[in-house]
Design a protein around this nucleic acid. Structure first.
Lengths: 342, 342
DNA sequence: ATCATTTTCCAAAGCGCTTTGGATAATCTT
DNA sequence: AAGATTATCCAAAGCGCTTTGGAAAATGAT
């Protein structure tokens, strides 16, 4: 059942039927009612492809995910983000178009999305410190919202980020207050803006107390469980091991925990752990009281909000860039305690 | 730059340019070369919306994910699946359209996808035992592939599944061979087909040795870490606690581990653990030797293959349904050992 | 050289919708 | 009651592509 058939059936023109269905004012209420009822009973839904072509809008938002051998974009954190974003999209009749691309031609993928008109806008995931995607999208004129920020980027753009620096500064201060001095950092790749900022917060807290950053205690890599495990093993084996470790995500924190326990040490006593908790729905940091002391900010909420911001921008393209900086909350769980006496 | 502009520029008709670009035979090689080169230099890419309308194909595959308060579809396993599927799509020029819907109108969402022509086919995730989506999609005539199976479903359909029954039978046998008798099961929701089959494999192994299934030892719920933790605590507190626990995923297994260790028991000695390992990229079961003894099957590979099967089906709609049953591999890690002596 | 084929290209008709620019009918002024 | 407004509807022109049904040009057969 298409528009022509429906309008023939009703003895009306396609124009009128289309207008009735789309809520235009130049159609009598009685007619509108007749049309909507007929559409209902005959199960008419406008063809998306035709509608897209006519309106120039696709009602879909692109998410480009690079598939690289060395860095996994698609992970638990990502899936919670898209769950949130997807929820926001659904509420406004959008949906999400995910294209997986080889990371060598990620730029081309964005270009293609823009020139072929597949999407009305995109979300930029995992921005690097000086991310080239931002000027590119700016140039392409495709609306976008960055989840995170990109330092050194001069072009104006909309973003939503958690205050990673203050979160890690706060976590580090918390440990310092407990008397810890040897504090390890298990971070994500530091080309990524969020990881760089987290390291910076960590560094600032230490330096404020006159403690130098020990390169032996700071590690940056893909945030997997085995990475947390391996680096913790390495640090604990050293002559001057850390008494506390900060992990950039719950997942490597699980590895940290495994390494600590395997060594027969007790968490929160021999070694304290703080992690950044994205409040993943499938991997919650405990249900009642938190397992790990953590700085927490829901990535799902972030997804939801990024989606909203982007749709707003698409709907009103004249509006300027919007920024939101969220503070992470510090939740104290059982994984931290006073530094052990020497 | 659109087709008309490009053809005007070349002094050719749109027909010829279109044909040259799409590899049709009725165009001289020299002309084709001239056209492709012009397209290249002028950065011409056909408008997807127009192309879709003209061809009736969208080159995109739908994934419907119900958003429910009590059951999370979007999880780590899901994200690895779509990474695999997305990779397959990318290779053949498809991409993925994800729509998040309230679970109360999931059926309507599929109907809408079909009638509005948003996608060329869909992947059905997490089939229930008698899943109504299968007859629905069959009726709608929308190509689809089910990741998993749906028992009791009479309509023919394509699916790819791991042999959940044999995997859990094997895991249970492995523990029985080690002398375990009290074996706990931390399963997913048993309305879901895979969970039902897993339970069945577990039951069959026990019954083959004349051991009755103890309801105190079998639990089914959302497969989160806290669920694994809570149920393990509960079981370990009982008068006749299990000496081994089988978990339906690595994630609840982490909770199982936490509960066991928190009680001061040793994994692989006091309590053995086997889990189903989906070989998640972000949460691998160890790098070299596995952490948990596990039955393993890569959900990412499954995603890739489901995607391929679906695209094949879309390309040749006359082909009958295809089935693939994958056997999970048993990998022995450090989490299992002989049953402790009484 | 003539006719039949094949090769190469084109004009025009969709695909199913939205939207512009009227026309007609109904209502309001005076 | 005639002219001015307004409410209601319509025909037709896109949106940018593919594809059908020829036409013209080139090639082959006789």
């Amino acid at each position: 059942m298409n528009l022509r058939e429906l309008s023939d059936l009703l003895g009306l023109s396609q124009t009128t039927v289309s207008r009735a269905l789309n809520g235009y004012p130049e159609v009598k209420e009685a007619t509108r009612k007749r049309v909507t009822e007929a559409a209902e009973t005959h199960n008419y839904y406008p063809n998306t492809r035709a509608k897209s072509l006519a309106t120039g809008r696709t009602m879909s938002i692109g998410h480009v995910i690079p598939l690289s051998s060395q860095h996994e974009m698609v992970n638990c954190v990502f899936s919670d983000f898209i769950a949130g974003a997807g929820e926001a999209y659904a509420r406004q009749g959008y949906d999400m178009r995910v294209s997986v691309v080889d990371d060598s031609d990620e730029a081309k993928a964005y270009e293609r999305l823009a020139t072929t008109g597949k999407v009305d806008g995109v979300i930029v995931h995992g921005p690097l410190i000086d991310d080239e995607r931002i000027p590119l999208l700016d140039r392409l004129g495709l609306p976008f919202v960055v989840h995170g920020r990109s330092s050194n980027c001069t072009a104006p753009y909309s973003w939503l980020d958690v205050n990673n620096r203050s979160a890690f500064r706060r976590a580090t201060d918390f440990l310092l207050d407990l008397g810890h001095v040897r504090i390890g950092l298990v971070n994500g790749f530091e080309e990524m803006d969020f990881a760089m900022r987290r390291r910076d917060g960590y560094r600032a807290a230490l330096e404020a107390r006159g403690i130098a950053v020990d390169p032996m205690l700071t590690h940056a890599f893909e945030m997997t469980e085995p990475f947390g495990y391996a680096k913790t093993c390495e640090m604990l084996r050293s002559d001057d091991p850390p008494t506390a470790i900060i992990a950039s995500s719950l997942i490597p924190a699980l590895g940290v925990r495994r390494a600590v326990e395997e060594r027969g040490l007790t968490i929160g006593k021999d070694v304290s752990i703080i992690c950044f908790d994205d409040a993943l729905s499938y991997l919650p940091n405990g249900t009642g009281s938190p397992i790990f002391t953590a700085t927490r900010s829901s990535v799902r909420d972030a997804g939801r909000r990024c989606g909203e911001m982007l749709m707003d921008q698409i709907e009103d393209r004249t509006a300027g860039p919007v920024h939101e900086l969220w503070e992470a909350e510090l939740v104290v769980g059982g994984s931290t305690g006073p530094a052990p006496q020497r």
